[in-house]
C-alpha cells in the first residue's frame, strides 16, 4: 500500500458535507425512510457496506471526488434496499429520471421544471 496514492482527502479544513444538491436529497430520503419505519438502520448499513465494499481504491482524488463516489454508492445502496423491499422498482426509477430530463430540456431557464412536461 503506497501512501501517496491513498492520501486522506480534506484533513485540514472544514469541507462541506455535500457537494451537490442530489447528495443532500439522497441523504435526507434515506433518513426519512428509516424514520418512517421502512427499514432498520442495520439493514441500511448492510446495503451501504455491500456497495462500498466493491468500490476500487481511488487515485489521488479531491474531497469532491470522494463525496461524489460516496454518494453514488449511497444512492445505489438506497435503490438496492428499496428494490429488495419491493418499494421502488429500478425500471420505474429509470423511466421517471428520463421523464425529468425531458421535462428539463423543454423548460426554459428560470422556470420551475414540472414533471408532467416530460411525459410522452
Amino acid at each position: 500500500m503506497t501512501a501517496p496514492d491513498l492520501a486522506i482527502p480534506g484533513t485540514e479544513g472544514a469541507e462541506p458535507h455535500f457537494f451537490a444538491p442530489w447528495q443532500v436529497k439522497a441523504f435526507a430520503l434515506t433518513v426519512a425512510l428509516h424514520e418512517a419505519g421502512l427499514f432498520a438502520w442495520t439493514e441500511w448499513a448492510e446495503a451501504l457496506s455491500a456497495r462500498i465494499g466493491g468500490a476500487p481504491l481511488p487515485q489521488r482524488d479531491t474531497p469532491e471526488d470522494h463525496a461524489t463516489r460516496y454518494y453514488l454508492d449511497w444512492l445505489g445502496a438506497l435503490e438496492d434496499l428499496l428494490a429488495a423491499k419491493g418499494l421502488a422498482e429500478a425500471d420505474m426509477i429509470g423511466d421517471m429520471a428520463l421523464t425529468w430530463q425531458r421535462a428539463a430540456r423543454a423548460t426554459p431557464h428560470g422556470t420551475p421544471i414540472v414533471y408532467e412536461t416530460g411525459q410522452e
Binding site: 439522497a26 435503490e79 421502488a88 421517471m96 429520471a97 425529468w100 428539463a104
Partner: peptide, 22 residues
C-alpha cells in the same frame, strides 16, 4: 435543445425520480 432548456445531470434526475416515486 440544451441551449434554451435546462439540463439535469443523471444523478440529479435519478434522485428527483426517487423522491417523486416515494
Amino acid at each position: 435543445d440544451h441551449d434554451d432548456g435546462s439540463h439535469l445531470d443523471d444523478m440529479t434526475a435519478r434522485v428527483m425520480a426517487l423522491e417523486k416515486l416515494l
